[in-house]
């Protein structure tokens, strides 16, 4: 299952990769340390290459997670038909939780760190 990771923190990316590989969640992982780069990639990716899952960090410089979601809808609406987007954040703020629940593009908000049980849950959601 193709998965895209978007996070400016290299440790976070390292951790997610390691965990996803161990749990044999993804056969291919593409990671971006900037939301803008990820946006460019998704815009031009042919449909068969679109990821099944995006794990999106919120707090990033230049373009944050919310801005990425706003920008994604007009430029690559087809992505939303093939991909589930999960927000993965260290933020414990209630405002972020509420905002995630209200955003139709977001499946769920997950608090860092990612663990085995969360991965199992995502797996079951994506194979429904």
């Amino acid at each position: 299952m193709h998965t895209v990771l978007i996070d400016d923190d290299m440790t976070s990316i390292f951790l997610m990769r390691l965990l996803l590989q161990r749990e044999e969640f993804a056969d291919s992982i593409t990671s971006f340390q900037s939301a803008q780069e990820a946006l460019g990639y998704l815009q031009q990716a042919p449909v068969p290459e679109l990821p099944k899952v995006i794990l999106l960090d919120l707090n990033m410089p230049v373009m944050n997670g919310w801005e990425f979601l706003e920008a994604l809808q007009p430029v690559a609406p087809h992505v939303l038909d093939h991909t589930r987007i999960y927000i993965l954040t260290s933020s414990l703020a209630q405002t972020d939780l509420t905002r995630a629940a209200q955003n139709p593009l977001v499946t769920r908000l997950i608090h860092k760190p990612l663990d085995k049980s969360e991965i199992e849950l995502i797996k079951s959601e994506t194979t429904e």
Partner: peptide, 25 residues
Amino acid sequence: FAYIVSHNLRAPLANMLGLVDLLID
């Protein structure tokens, strides 16, 4: 400050938690 606590203190801490989990495993 609340923002700092939730992001900038929590971010490395969340990473550390994840790393320690993996080390234990």
